[in-house]
């Protein structure tokens, strides 16, 4: 690795100042599972690591029945999937957190790092989108909030400006009769990059779907929020026809590439299949039923 300086600021202000003073080669260090490898392989010119894990707002899990859930952006995944409130109320976050890397990666990796890294196949982002995640950002010019679906802009690129830090991710309190599910397709059972991934959240009133959000990944330059897919479900009971319409909308929205992990045709097909499966599973969860697999 090239020569680097390591800093572990105790406050957000200090961290923002360090990033501002040291320019673009000063890199935020959360779990390090992406950035340490990239710095070592010289894929990111790095002069300084600004370790954000000692900053109180950046770690930890806070839940309030009316405010909802707030996750410090650098909270490691294993703390997220072991949290009982998250297991009960936000199982879709557990789906994502428990699939990223293996146990040793989950001991360090964070949702904030996964989101900021802005990989098209990132396994947390579809879940963060369908759960209406809001990214709180603090930087040299103050504070702002960005919806997760607007956070990534291109492969490896996001909306953060020089000196800005993603502080936390917030999610509204779950509504009654709602449920969400994330699934990914890979050729083996674990430890691989998604060929396609998808998430769906649903809310019912009586028999009718009254809200639906669907997002798919690894099929476009950035994780894709597909409002047309959700819209195909809303205002009616969930039927095979409405599910097929939503899944077709996902397939139509996907603009994948051919690579060693999958072809365009396979990825289009998987967008359909995973959308369908996540809708069915989200509906089970909304009704309080256990999933079959």
């Amino acid at each position: 690795m090239q020569d680097v300086t390591y800093r572990r600021p105790a406050t957000l202000q200090e961290a923002v100042q360090l990033l501002k003073d040291n320019g673009p080669t000063a890199r935020v260090l959360a779990g390090g599972t992406d950035i340490i490898v990239m710095a070592r392989e010289r894929r990111r010119d790095t002069s300084m690591f600004v370790d954000i894990k000692a900053i109180p707002e950046l770690t930890g899990i806070r839940f309030d029945a009316s405010e909802g859930l707030t996750l410090g952006a650098a909270t490691p995944l294993y703390q997220i999937y072991r949290n009982e409130t998250i297991q009960r109320l936000y199982p879709c976050l557990v789906d994502s957190a428990s699939l990223i890397g293996g146990t040793a990666v989950q001991g360090r990796a964070s949702f904030g790092g996964n989101l900021c890294n802005a990989g098209p196949a990132a396994d947390s982002i579809p879940s963060l989108i369908v759960l209406e995640g809001k990214a709180r950002i603090v930087g040299p010019n103050g504070e702002r909030t960005v919806a997760v679906e607007d956070f990534c802009t291109a492969p490896g690129r996001n909306v953060l400006e020089a000196g800005e830090i993603l502080v936390s991710l917030s999610f509204p309190a779950p509504q009654p009769n709602s449920g969400a599910r994330f699934l990914r397709f890979i050729p083996r059972n674990e430890m691989d990059i998604a060929v396609v991934n998808a998430a769906t959240s649903l809310r019912f009133e009586g028999n009718n779907v009254v809200a639906a959000r669907i997002a798919i990944g690894a099929v476009a330059p950035r994780p894709l929020f597909v409002p047309a897919a959700g819209a195909a479900l809303v205002g009616k009971p969930l039927t095979d026809e409405s599910i097929a319409a939503a899944a077709s909308a996902s397939r139509d929205a996907a603009t994948p590439i051919d690579d060693m992990r999958g072809s365009v045709r396979q990825r289009k097909h998987l967008s359909y299949v995973l959308t369908e499966r996540t809708i069915r599973d989200a509906a089970h969860r909304a009704r309080g039923e256990a999933l079959e697999h």
């Binding site: 490898v37 293996g102 040793a104």
Partner: peptide, 25 residues
């Protein structure tokens, strides 16, 4: 690069790959 687990250690009660941790941390 984090893929093989040969460098695994337990750090403050959790399993990590030591190639993905800075000594300074």
């Amino acid at each position: 690069n984090g893929n093989c687990g040969a460098c695994a250690v337990i750090m403050d009660g959790r399993l990590v790959n030591s190639c993905l941790v800075l000594a300074a941390e």
